[in-house]
Design a protein around this nucleic acid. Structure first.
Lengths: 344, 344
DNA sequence: CTTTCGACTCGAAGCGTTTCGACTAACCGC
DNA sequence: GCGGTTAGTCGAAACGCTTCGAGTCGAAAG
């Protein structure tokens, strides 16, 4: 592999001059620059990333910390990762993937101390997140996807669950639904302070109250089976229900199946509105789900963009961006049926 | 950040001795080793990955080349990426993500020449793949997920589409189906030599013939809408059909929906058998799809494992592994209806 | 008691960059 | 025609590690 010394020799200049020409660090005469450029592509020269990083103390690598979740990663996360990788590439950076158990701060500490990356994008942030504490303490530049409860001046990009849930409630209320349920993630995710669970739950209570309708919430494990079960539970406890907001991609299919199985029709008898589930999945259920789609790609792009801006020392204002989900109408919502006439 | 020199000073030894102790490159006295160890964790020392890589000419990074596809990445790919990242981590490596347009050999060349990674795992390999040519030519160690048409002595791990499709045909034949269709990916994917499309298509023809049943194939774009359309096409052209093998995750939901919409029942009137689609999605359709699940995590793990084995110079036999999909029974297949009695 | 060998250690020379200080020629304003 | 810039270039010193050659010492071998 050709090195900078080879290029310098061939172009008849000092190594440092090659470096200047390459990075524009200092002015280089037009003719010299041309000679160097020529030498470079005759040799097929590419600067060595490791050496460059070592000497400059900037690796031009960023890490994406992405958790090994028991519930597994979904398509939203995939979109997110794709966008992050692509954006990093566009900005001349490399994206390295750190798959770490959610609580493992030690592992993360070890990883960050290796000096392989200049900063990290961290996802699945919890309201209280030891990893964020650690990053702050160790002075590791980072950008969150999601946010803690106490984010003061750390940059983040997150889904605006508050406004999304508000919109969702308004949407159903607008269709005449007066008794609306909210199907959340698991109790456990709520208890451990998973941001979306907590914020959405709160937002739902408020929005339902504000809209003057009867609202109730359920936790639900992330599986179709749990979704089926929760529907049975709901119809038993809330016979007047006509609308459901489901923020649980995997459960949503179960809910739909359970309704159909009980002889209910969607959307004639019940409206099911999905929140933050991916397009690829929403269009595959029966009927296809009307959904507030998460801005996964935007978040991914934004996350690495913001991080890199900081790394490059650009004097950027603190970015703390909330992006609402975008409504895509499909076939699972419609005008409310007469309150008690529903379900066979 | 503490450096090796700091550790050496504190432990009262030469820098090289610290290195030997750290890597076991040469013997170090027990007492010395202990002193060094102590110094290390008093300082919270972690070796600098860049310096280490530069000096040793082995970065301990591997790249995952993953394509920006127009059809987007699915859950299978996500599982795959997760497994790869996790495995790399377990083996003390970092996984960097290179998101590249499928045909962009130049970009790939640039990336590999930077010396950031020791080798690459490459996915979505086509039967004729310029990227593989390039890797061979440039002597970049690699492992394919998928395989070219001419793989001689390059390592790969791939889904065994031949045997999977054979099994699928046998499964339906065993249920009494005599007229079975195969829904492939798009014509385009076939024409551009996308391995799964080509191999599965061939395998289906053979297996259908061998089983003595009436088999026919269709290409289908990757979308529910295309799936609906293909079903209309099929019922028009093949009125006797009772079984369908669908190797197209996104289309499968459309097929199901179209059947239901025409008043057909699954599996009473028609059996739909999905091939190589993810569990997360298969369980969300209506009815849930009986599926041959792709061994995504195994492939991901295997890919980086094999690559790293080679990098470490272990004298491993050439790994060219084919893993069949595993059948998971759900609700979309059953005994064949009377040939012509189906469909309302 | 020498020789030999292995365990153990050290210093120095890289690895391929960036960056710093210094030096030379113009060139500018006066 | 003299200080002061500025464009353009060079050599050398890092950066934090690995690796090589060489040296010391004690124990086993002859």
């Amino acid at each position: 592999m050709a090195s900078m010394a080879d290029v310098a020799r061939r172009a008849n200049v000092a190594v440092s001059t090659v470096s200047y020409a390459l990075n524009g660090t200092r002015p280089v005469a037009k003719a010299t620059a041309e000679r160097i450029r020529k030498a470079m592509d005759e040799l097929g020269y590419r600067p060595n990333a490791l050496a460059r990083g070592l000497a400059s103390k900037r690796s031009r690598n960023v890490a994406l910390i992405f958790p090994m979740l028991e519930r597994g990663l979904g398509l939203t996360e995939m979109e997110f990762v794709s966008a992050a990788a692509e954006t990093a590439g566009d900005l001349g950076y490399h994206l390295v993937l750190w798959s770490t158990p959610l609580g493992d701060t030690d592992l993360l500490t070890k990883l960050t101390r290796q000096g392989l990356v200049d900063g990290v994008v961290i996802m699945e942030v919890h309201l209280e997140d030891a990893r964020i504490e650690m990053l702050r303490r160790n002075g590791v530049p980072f950008c969150m996807i999601g946010r803690t409860g106490d984010n003061r001046d750390d940059p983040f990009a997150d889904i605006d669950f508050e406004s999304t849930v508000r919109d969702a409630v308004a949407h159903l209320a607008g269709l005449g639904h007066r008794s609306v349920g909210f199907v959340n993630h698991s109790q456990r995710s709520f208890d451990t302070g998973y941001g979306p669970s907590v914020r959405a739950a709160r937002a739902f209570e408020e929005a339902a109250a504000a809209a003057g309708l009867h609202g109730f919430s359920r936790f639900c494990d992330d599986s179709p089976a749990a979704g089926r079960e929760i529907w049975r539970d709901i119809t038993a406890a809330e016979p007047g229900v006509t609308g459901l907001i489901v923020m649980n991609e995997r459960a949503s299919a179960g809910v739909l199946a359970a309704i159909l199985q009980q002889g209910g029709r969607v959307p004639e008898d019940y409206s099911v509105l999905s929140v933050a589930s991916s397009a690829r999945v929403s269009e595959m259920t029966y009927p296809p789900l009307t959904t507030y789609h998460p801005p996964a790609a935007e978040l991914g792009r934004l996350g690495v963009q913001v991080l890199i801006d900081r790394l490059e020392g650009r004097e950027v204002p603190l970015v703390q961006q909330l992006i609402p989900c975008r409504l895509v109408l499909r076939d699972s919502t419609g005008p409310a049926a007469r309150p008690h006439g529903a379900g066979s």
